[in-house]
Each structure stands twice: as structure tokens, then as C-alpha cells.
Amino acid sequence: MSVVLPGELVPAQHVNLKLGPGLQQEAASQVTATRAGILEHSANNSRWWVESNSRRYVPAPQEPVVGVITGRLGEGWRVDIGSAHNASLDALAFEGASRRNRPNLKVGSLIYARVSLAHKDMEPELECFDAQTRKAEGFGELKGGFLVRCSLRMSRNLLDPNHFLLPLLGSRFPLDAAVGVNGRVWISAKEPKQTIAAARCIEGADPDGGGMDQLALKMFLDSLDF
């Protein structure tokens, strides 16, 4: 773990390098920090980002987000993803979408999307399919369920395959989840009390909230009647 400051060079190198918030690639493939914080990277060093106390999400390409439809925009929609500006989502940015076959999203609908374009001088753009396979791969409209808000750090923790919380919840009851790095987690369980329990566990494990560990959350779940 190391602390970086704005303008500092970062030793981020990988064949499929993906940069998250707080980092940008300069000429000659140099990567520099754009804000102060703790330098983090994935286990295989392909993803790098700067963890800070920022509450506002800063979009970065290829990151998954949970968004809320706020209105129409030409042939697509405007989407609130918790960043400084709304994102745009084209009606054709879905698997199998065409001029005659497109989603019917309404204001207030939730979507799970990937950031396809992010630039400081332009509004972010989203797509609801995997950029490589052109398949939905879990992206698209999120129907039913419940939206939980958490810190940006917690959402990145949940996307880590080694984090204990989602496997722990999945061992207690069937649960569908879509985790966005923008501090939003969509969850859906068969019974309302299971959804409430999952939401409370996410809030309890949040480092900016209760910061409960695996043992404490196991005890909490053991005290509930499912």
C-alpha cells in the first residue's frame, strides 16, 4: 500500500491495463495520479486506481455502474450514475437492439451498465453489453429488487472475488446482485426480509459505516429467522 499525490508517476503496467479513478495515462505510456489517495490494484495488476475519501463517483472507461433513468435523450436516455454530470445511454447499446427492437425504459428505471466513454470535458457514455463479446453478460435493465447505496470503497470491495460478504449472503439464501463502482448495489431476494438482511449487511460491512467483519456479520445473520 502506498500513498500518491497529484502528478506523481505510478508504476502501473499490464498487457490489458485498465485505469480507474485518480489515474490517467500520459504520453510515452506513463501513468500519473490526478488526486491524492492510496494506490490500489487488482490481484493480477490489470486494474489500478486511487482510493480516496471522495463521495462523488468519477467515471472511468469499462467500469460497471448502476444507473437511474432520468429522462429521454434523442434516441436514448439520460442516466444518473452519481457523477458530476449525467451519462447518456443510446437505445442501440444493448444486446440485439435494433431500430425496431429496443428497450422500453421509463424514468426511474434502474440499469446495470458499463462506462464506454469517460472524458473530463464530455458527458459519460454507457453501454449495456460486454465490449468484447457484444453479449449482455448481466448488463441491462434491473427489474424489481432494491437499491443499496454505499461508499465507493465498499462497492469496489464487493467487486473483489475474494471479499467475504456476497459469498456469505449467498450461502444463507438465494440472492441476485449487481454491483456498480459508483457506490450503488442492486440486490434481489425471494423474500423481503432476506433483501432487508442483505442491505443491512452491506451497510454494516461498509468501511465508512459500521466496518463489521465476517465474524460479526455471521453472528448477525445467525440471529435472524429466514
Rank of each mutant, 00 (worst) to 15 (best):
F129L: 06
S171L: 13
D160H: 06
R102Y: 06
A136N: 02
L142W: 12
R100I: 03
V115H: 00
A93T: 01
R156Q: 06
N86E: 15
G170F: 11
A87S: 13
P103I: 03
C128H: 11
G96E: 00
G145V: 00
S171N: 14
L147W: 06
G96K: 01
L152H: 08
R100W: 01
E127W: 09
D130I: 02
R99K: 05
A136R: 06
L89Q: 03
E123I: 14
L159Y: 12
L159H: 13
L126P: 11
L126Q: 12
F164N: 15
S171I: 04
P124T: 07
Q132Y: 12
E141G: 13
S109L: 00
R156I: 05
V115L: 01
N162E: 15
S88A: 11
E123C: 11
D90H: 08
F139I: 01
A97D: 03
L126M: 12
G145F: 00
P103G: 03
L168N: 00
A136Y: 10
R102E: 03
G82R: 09
L126I: 14
L117N: 15
F139G: 00
E123F: 15
A93E: 03
K143Q: 13
D90R: 10
E141Q: 14
N104V: 04
L165D: 06
R99L: 06
H163Y: 09
S88Q: 11
L165S: 08
N86D: 13
C150V: 04
S98C: 01
E127Q: 15
N162T: 15
A93L: 02
A97W: 09
P161W: 11
E125K: 14
Q132P: 04
L89N: 05
Q132N: 13
A131F: 10
E125W: 05
E137H: 13
N162Q: 15
L117H: 14
S171M: 11
H163R: 13
K106S: 12
L152K: 08
N162R: 15
F139V: 01
M154Q: 06
D160I: 11
S116L: 01
R156V: 07
F173S: 04
L117P: 08
D90C: 05
E137F: 10
T133W: 10
R153S: 14
C150E: 01
L92R: 07
E141V: 10
G82K: 04
L159D: 09
N157D: 10
C128Q: 11
P124L: 10
A97K: 10
S151Q: 00
A84F: 14
E137V: 12
S116D: 09
R149Q: 09
E95V: 04
G170Y: 11
R102F: 05
F146D: 05
Q132A: 14
P174V: 11
N101Y: 05
